[in-house]
Simulated scan of single mutants.
Amino acid sequence: MKQFPTHIVAVFGIAENEKEEILLLKHRGRNIWMFPGGQVEVGENLIDALIRETKEESGMEIDVVKLFSVSSNTCSYQGYNGYDIVPTKVVMGFICRYIGGEFCDSDETTESLWVSKDKVLDLIVVPDFIDKFKGYLDFTGGIEYLEYITKPEYNLKLKCLI
């Protein structure tokens, strides 16, 4: 019997406040700065997933404004927490607007920071986050598509506008 391919669908948001600063969250386990986001759950749409993930990770509320990025992490690798294999990930990036709320830590985050756009690249160190943020900075209306692998090391395989 044939089997459908398996992909993880995920979302992330570049959330801006009224001063055009960007929301960064510090990941609890990896001690790195990141953008809010995560996996889309079964039966959940992309926008609701990003609103939920941001609320869970930061306690803050956002409006999802515009899609600016689609990417594929096409590597698969050994799983963890009882999962056999981590499959290809398809990740959509959205520009978001901060609505309100104060930061509260979570199982995934320890702190938040509002950063001017020109300082974000000084703080994020994960290569795909860097490439995605550069796509946000360069956004003029076309959707950027990235294909990359993260293991055994980061390799950007394709970057284009679609």
Rank of each mutant, 00 (worst) to 15 (best):
G38F: 04
Y136H: 07
V115E: 01
G93N: 12
I130S: 03
F4T: 14
V64T: 09
S112I: 00
Y145P: 00
G38C: 03
D138E: 09
L137D: 11
F133Y: 15
K159N: 07
K66P: 00
G38K: 02
P127D: 13
L67P: 00
Y83W: 09
I162E: 13
I14S: 00
F35I: 15
K132L: 05
L123W: 10
E41P: 08
T110N: 07
E102Y: 05
T110Y: 05
L158Y: 02
T150V: 13
D118C: 02
L50K: 03
N17A: 03
S76G: 06
K151C: 10
T140Y: 12
V120C: 04
G37V: 13
G142M: 08
S72V: 06
L121A: 05
H7Y: 12
C104M: 11
K119I: 09
Y145L: 13
C75P: 05
P127F: 05
G59L: 04
Y77S: 09
G79K: 05
L156S: 08
I162C: 10
D63M: 11
H27A: 07
K55L: 13
L50C: 04
S69G: 11
G142K: 14
T109N: 03
S76A: 08
C96E: 02
D122T: 01
S112Q: 02
V64P: 01
Q78L: 05
E102V: 04
P87M: 12
I143L: 14
K157N: 14
V126F: 06
D118I: 07
I143Y: 15
L25K: 01
R97M: 10
C96R: 09
